[in-house]
Simulated scan of single mutants.
Amino acid sequence: MTLLPIFDGHNDVLLRLVRREGAARAFLDGTEDGQLDLPRARAGGMVGGLFAVFSPPARGFAYADQMMGASYDVPLPGMLPMNEAREATLAMIALLLRIERESAGEVAICRDTSEIRAAIARGALATVLHIEGAEAIDPELEMLYVLHAAGLRSIGPVWSRPTVFGHGVPFRFPGSPDTGPGLTEAGERLVAACNALRILIDLSHLNEAGFWDVARLSKAPLVATHSNAHAITPSARNLTDRQLAAIRDSDGMVGLNFATCFLRPDGRMRTDTGLDTMLRHLDYLIERVGEDRVGFGSDFDGALIPAEIGTAAGLPSLVGAMRAHGYDEALLAKLGSENWLSLLERTIG
C-alpha cells in the first residue's frame, strides 16, 4: 500500500544526535535508538518537517519520571546563558548542514515552500530549520538575521523556561496556560522582525499572555506546531478553546503532539496510550479550527509517544487508525501534509 505523505511540524532529532560521533551518518544510515532517522522517515512516509534546534540546560532536564502521578508541577530550569545557547544552537545547525551535504541529495534544507515541494517531488526529505526557545538570539536581534541567512524559517520565542522575549508554560497537570506575564519589549520586536523576514512564530510553549500578545501584534497566521486540546487534556501546554478559535480566525495551524502526557486525559507519561486518544484530539481540533488547519507535530525524539507508533516508521499505524475511524482519503491527505504546506506558503512564502 502506498504510504501517506507526512510533513511533521516538530522533532528533536538534532538534539538527540548532536554530540554523537558521526552524527550525520547516523541520521542517514539509521540508529538503533531514538525515534527518527532517514530510514525510519522513509518507512513511515515522512516527506519532511520542521527540525528543531533546542538548547538544553547544562545539567540536563529529566522530567518524565516526575509526570506519572495524578498531578504534577515540574520545576523548570532557569534562563539559559546566551553563550551556552549559541554554542548548542550552532552545533545543531551545523549538524543539519552536514546531514544535507553528506546525503547526496536525499536531504534538503528548504527556505521556502517552493523548495519544500521541489525536494518532496524528487524524493528528498524536506527539512525546515526551526529554533525552539530563542536563547541564542540577543535582544537587539542581530543574531536573528544571521540565523535567517543560515536558513532559519521558524522560531518559538520560548521553550518552557523564560527568555529575554517572554515566558513559557510549565509542565503542570492539571494546569492553565495562564501562568504569568506576556512578551517583553524585546519579544514584541522579535514578532515584528519575524513578520518582516517571513519567519513562522511558533506558539507551542508560550504562556497564554504571550499567545495573546502575538495574536495582537503579528500579521501572520497563528501557529502551534506541537500542541493539543486543553479541553481533553488539561495540561498547561495545551490550547484552550479560545486560543483555538484565534488560530482558526487567523487561518493558522495546530500540529497534533504525540507526547502521551499531552494526549491522555490523566496527563500521564505512559507508552501504553491507545491511538484512540490521538483520534479524540484530532476530532476535537478539526471541530474547533477546521480540517484545513490541523496536521501532525510529533515531537519525535523529544517525547514519550504511544507504543503503537513507537518511531517515525510507525506512522502508518496512526494513519490506519484514522482510516478505520472514518477519515476519507482527502482528509488524510490534508492532515498528512497538504495543510502544513499550505500554512507554510502563508507564512514563510
Rank of each mutant, 00 (worst) to 15 (best):
P157K: 05
I116T: 04
A124W: 02
V107L: 09
L96Q: 00
F165P: 09
C110T: 05
G133S: 09
L144E: 00
E100D: 07
H130F: 11
H148I: 02
T127R: 10
V164Q: 11
E102V: 01
R153Y: 05
E115D: 01
T113N: 12
E102A: 12
R122V: 06
V128T: 07
P157Y: 02
L141H: 00
I137S: 04
M143V: 15
W159D: 03
E132W: 11
E115Y: 08
I109T: 09
I116V: 07
A104K: 15
E102H: 06
E102R: 10
D112R: 04
V128F: 13
A150G: 09
S103W: 04
I120C: 14
H130L: 12
P157M: 04
A149I: 12
L97D: 15
E115K: 04
I109E: 00
P139L: 01
G168K: 06
A118R: 05
L147E: 07
V128I: 13
A136H: 06
I131Y: 05
A150P: 01
E115C: 12
A124D: 07
S160Q: 10
T127S: 15
H148G: 09
A126W: 00
I120L: 11
A149N: 11
A108W: 02
R98Q: 13
A121P: 11
A104F: 13
L144D: 01
E140G: 06
V146S: 08
L96C: 05
G151P: 00
E102Y: 02
A118S: 15
